[in-house]
C-alpha cells in the first residue's frame, strides 16, 4: 500500500496514521500534543496537512493513511497556519528560554525554530504565580500550552487522577484536584506529568540550574528501589560527578513510568555521609585504614576462625540491593574459599 506525501510515493501499513508514515519517511510534521505513549488527541493543531479531496486542513496524527491519497505538508497555507498557531502559543505565555529549565528539551522551542519564528508579539498580561509548593515538582502556568499531555499522563497512564483542567477557553489551566496547591493535593510526586510535558511548564524542582540538557550525559540503568526494575535514564554531569535528574525509559517493564523514589531519590550516592575508607575497630573505635590493612586483617581473622571452628562457623549475607555480580561473588567466596553453604540474602526479611 502506498500514498503520496509531498510528491513522494511512500509505503504504509494498515493502522498507521499519516503522521506515522511521514515520520517513518523523514518528512517533518511538527506536533506538541502528540506523544507515542499518548497517541492522537488533535488538540494542538500543529500537525495539520492538506489532503487532496478533503475540506480544510486535517490533523495528520488522527487521519489514517489510505491507499492512493495525496498529502501535502509544505504548502503556504499549512505553513502559515502552523506559524500562527505557534505564535499564539508564544504570545499566550511567558516563554523565557534563557531562564527556562526545559531549554534544549522543549518541544515548543524546537517547533518555533523549525518554523523559522524569530520574533513574536510580547505578552501584555502579568505572569501567573508558579506552584512550587511540592517537594519535587514545579508547575509554571506561564509556560503551559494546555496540550493536555500531563492530564492524560496523570489520569490515564499512571492512574493517579490528580491533574485536571480548570476554567474555560483562554483562561484554561492545569490544576491539582480542586485547584489546590500541589503540596496539598493528592499528588504522589511520581513525575509522569513532567516526563510528558513538552515545555517548561512542569519541571523537576531539584534539577533547576544544575545543567542544560545538552551538557548532561545520558546513562541507561535500572532503578535501585523495589523489585519492578524500572528502566531509567540518568542525566549525569560528568565534571561535577553528579546525577542531575532521572527520567523513565520507554521500554519494558515500566514503559517510561516511575514513582517518587525512582525519579527523585538519587542523591544518596553523593551524600557526604558515605563511607569512603575501610574501617577497622581498634580499642572499641572505628578507625580509617588502607585497603591492604583491612583486607589482610580480615583474611587473617577468617583463616584463624576457619582453622579453629571450621567452615560452618561462618555466615554470609549477600545484599539484595546490590548487583547479581556481587551476589555471585559472595556466593562463590562462601562456597569455594571458606567452604560453607551458610550463605543467604535478605529474601526472607
Amino acid at each position: 500500500m502506498e500514498l503520496t506525501i509531498d510528491g513522494r510515493n511512500v509505503p504504509f501499513r494498515a493502522g498507521q496514521t499519516v503522521l506515522d508514515v511521514a515520520r517513518e519517511n523523514g518528512i517533518y510534521i511538527p506536533t506538541l500534543c502528540w506523544h507515542p505513549r499518548i497517541g492522537p488527541s488533535s488538540r494542538c493543531r500543529l500537525c495539520i496537512v492538506e489532503i487532496e479531496g478533503t475540506r480544510g486542513l486535517q490533523t495528520a496524527c488522527s487521519v489514517l493513511a489510505g491507499s492512493g491519497i495525496t498529502v501535502r505538508t509544505d504548502t503556504e497555507i499549512v505553513k502559515t497556519a502552523r506559524r500562527m498557531t505557534v505564535e499564539n502559543l508564544l504570545y499566550d505565555g511567558h516563554h523565557d528560554c534563557i531562564a527556562c529549565e526545559a531549554n534544549g528539551r522543549c518541544e515548543l522551542q524546537d517547533v518555533a525554530y523549525r518554523l523559522g519564528i524569530r520574533e513574536y508579539p510580547v505578552v501584555s498580561e502579568p505572569a501567573q504565580l508558579l506552584d512550587d509548593s511540592s517537594a519535587m515538582i514545579v508547575m509554571d502556568p506561564n509556560k503551559c500550552i494546555v496540550c493536555g499531555r500531563c492530564i492524560i499522563a496523570c489520569n490515564e497512564i499512571v492512574g493517579n487522577d490528580v491533574l485536571t483542567f480548570s476554567q474555560r477557553g483562554y483562561r484554561t489551566k492545569i490544576v491539582c484536584d480542586t485547584a489546590v496547591p500541589m503540596a496539598e493535593s493528592s499528588c504522589v510526586q511520581c513525575g509522569e506529568c513532567l516526563q510528558l510535558c513538552p515545555t517548561g511548564a512542569i519541571t523537576e524542582k531539584k534539577s533547576a540550574g544544575k545543567g542544560r540538557e545538552w551538557e548532561l550525559e545520558k546513562v541507561n540503568s535500572t532503578c535501585p528501589y523495589c523489585g519492578v526494575g524500572c528502566q531509567v535514564i540518568l542525566h549525569v554531569d560528568r565534571a561535577a560527578n553528579r546525577i542531575v535528574r532521572i527520567s523513565g525509559r520507554e521500554v519494558p517493564p515500566n514503559d517510561g513510568m516511575l514513582c517518587v523514589k525512582g525519579r527523585f531519590a538519587y542523591e544518596f550516592t553523593e551524600s557526604p555521609k558515605r563511607l569512603t575508607k575501610p574501617l577497622i575497630k581498634k580499642d572499641g573505635k572505628h578507625v580509617e585504614v588502607s585497603w591492604d590493612e583491612a583486607l589482610d586483617y580480615t583474611a587473617r581473622r577468617f583463616k584463624e576462625i576457619k582453622e579453629k571452628h571450621g567452615a560452618d562457623a561462618f555466615g554470609f549475607i549477600a545484599s539484595s540491593r546490590s548487583t547479581n555480580e556481587n551476589a555471585y561473588a559472595t556466593m562463590k567466596f562462601s562456597r569455594a574459599v571458606i567452604g560453607t553453604n551458610n550463605v543467604d540474602n535478605c529474601a526472607r526479611t
Binding site: T222, R321, A327, A347
Partner: peptide, 15 residues
C-alpha cells in the same frame, strides 16, 4: 520487595 532480591536468589546466595 527489593530491586535485586530475585537476582540474589538467581545467583545462588541461598543455603
Amino acid at each position: 520487595g527489593q530491586n535485586n532480591v530475585q537476582g540474589s536468589c538467581d545467583m545462588g546466595a541461598l543455603p
